[in-house]
Design a protein around this nucleic acid. Structure first.
Lengths: 219, 219, 219, 219
DNA sequence: CATGAATGAGTTTTCATTCAT
DNA sequence: CATGAATGAAAACTCATTCAT
């Protein structure tokens, strides 16, 4: 079973300059999300990435720099994709909202990126610059996407006139909380609602409210 | 030589032994919420409470014990009040929901207790026991209150039949997020919606949805 | 032999807030002089001062701060004393020079302060601010003292007119080197000249030169 | 496929294997002198020499070995030259002293080798073996050269009888300090005396002293 | 009770050294 | 030969906890 070729002795490490930063960022994301910035030891990040502590410092200046990179690198690509996805959408605003929410869940909520939501809420006061970046590059752009859909719906007569800024928050909040729950109290919420059922019910309530009234075609 | 009038000697600190733990808990709440558990130094807690670091250990066994006390002490009384408030409520379910939300905001959201929401989300994986306690004693009981109101509404024909578990989340989420925003990104959200306007619009959307339909009497 | 009084059990540490900084500075001076800044471990400084590593940080922000304090605290008092010593000197300039040199040796050269000369030469490029401080507060003031003595000697006809700036360096240099030797190559220079013999011969050469000429009364 | 014309392939580096160690020694000298041994990173030495860090280890066993080589390689040739220069000197002892000093300055003081003086003073206690080597091979031989000149002067009646060991130090010290100043406080001493003026004044004072007496022919 | 000086285990950070390429 | 990614021991620094006063 053991290879008799002597040249196959396992090396102490293999050279993989290009892959390393991503591996480290992935490990760091996991641990930062689970434990928070201060409670995460760089030893553990390195171990989880399968490298030694020193290697980390070849790619990141210090712990804070690693944190910033985690947020920056993981988040930006996704936002771009999401925005691209809804450009030139043709259907009803109800369908648009549904599409946005589904996409949000699939690109962000379902993946480990959802943890960044928790991370940023927990650490925003410790890292104002990162928080500002995240607010401007992620939150604002997400909000703008939803807001455009709401305005579009009202303009097309699909949605009723309302306090749209508040409506925006009401629309966003359940998705945010869904992501946050994923990373807290998990042990105590085995009953968690399956995502598709959640999405369906969520869109239903958002569109039709709680009141007893003829609901309009939920796609 | 120096003590023939002991009763007039000026005490170095005013006597308020009983107040000490509360002052420490208040200081700890502030700092834990702002910085997180690990990033909060007991030095700073003591300083903010106006006592020395050693004093802290007269009242709390260690940092973790302080953390548990912060959650326990601050949260329990409020939940009791909230539950008491809605026992035997007489009005419509819409009014009940409105009352619960208003009470939630006034007792919890408006005060510094709102920070505990953020704190628990950030630290729940670091303190499973506290998380369990918080989940059972706060989250579940809050959820149960809302759920009772929803069930009541459906039973009384005020609310339409829905996936109530999902509806519960949708109802709760905006209030949760409102509290979370208060403790993150504040610097970048000067535009924050005033609470009363938020509450009004929020109840409106929750009850009536986004769709273009005749809204039913929003109290 | 063991004291039967139970209250005499030896404490892990004794409280001596006022003495600590001086003890630490003394230990740091020794080690910085012997090994240089970078090669000195704070562990060793603390150990030599008889405290733990953490204690060091109660009094100094970091290693650099300790270094600055070592130079500042040790050097300033001595300079003041030296300057005071020669104010209103009455004798001949030869005697004045002799007095200055003797004082220099006794206050500075003979003591462990002499190490600071070596330390500053070694570290001046690593700590430009400290070097500037040292240059302005120590070197310039020492030079000024000697220069005043030289000018006084020339004005009174005791010393011949010369390039005084150069003479200044020639006068100073042997004393500087004497201090530097003390902290380098000591192991290889058991033959080191006793200080009093050195001082006598040094003053003689400086005053009378090497040339064959009738020397003038060397005090 | 790729090598039918190997002699024309452009080499990635110009072939000058023999020069490598010298480039590394030069870079190391610069940095050791400026920062000291411990504060010099081999990364920087390699970078300044224009090679990679690993290359350093092809020529030197470790950092200490590099240090020893820096001292050894730079210093020995110069001493030999200096000694050769004065063998069979014919002029007056005054002229001999002048020649030695001028040679010292030109071969050593003016060049970057002067930094080794500072380096050895700073590091002698960290590297006793190197210090011993330097003391025996450089300091002692320099001292011997000067001492021979002094003895010669006394024997020929040009110099008066004195404590020659002390005189030796007095003669050497200003030159030593001149070299040391060059590598410390430079930023704060723009007023530095030009070397030729320094040399002239220095010889004058050394030969004739400070006292008011007819000077003897300063060459 | 209250204090705060002192501790030391635990983390971050550095960098000489190794070794697969 | 030359490279530079990777290592890990060692050093700086932090801070929860203790305890003499």
């Amino acid at each position: 079973m053991e290879m008799h070729c002597p040249s196959h002795s396992k090396p102490r490490w293999t050279r993989r300059k290009e892959a390393r930063p991503q591996e480290l960022l992935a490990a760091a994301l996991d641990l930062f999300v689970e434990r928070g910035f201060a409670a995460t030891r760089l030893d553990d990040v390195a171990a989880q990435a399968g490298v030694s502590k020193g290697t980390l410092y070849l790619y990141f200046t210090n712990k804070e720099d690693l944190f910033k990179a985690v947020v920056r690198e993981h988040v930006l690509p996704v936002i771009g994709e999401a925005e691209a996805m809804i450009v030139g959408f043709e259907g009803s605003s109800t369908e648009l909202l549904h599409a946005i929410m589904t996409g949000w869940w699939e690109k962000f909520g379902m993946t480990k990126l959802s943890g960044i939501t928790k991370l940023m809420i927990a650490e925003s006061s410790n890292f104002p610059e990162v928080a500002e970046f995240y607010h401007d590059e992620v939150i604002s752009r997400c909000n703008a996407m939803i807001m455009r859909a709401l305005v579009r719906g009202v303009e097309r007569g699909e949605f009723r006139p309302m306090d749209l800024e508040v409506a925006l928050q009401v629309v966003i909040a359940p998705m945010m909380m869904l992501m946050l729950w994923k990373h807290s109290y998990t042990a105590f919420r085995p009953e968690a609602i399956p995502a598709d059922r959640f999405l369906a019910g969520y869109i239903d309530v958002i569109l039709n409210g709680l009141h007893t009234l003829p609901a309009i075609g939920n796609p």
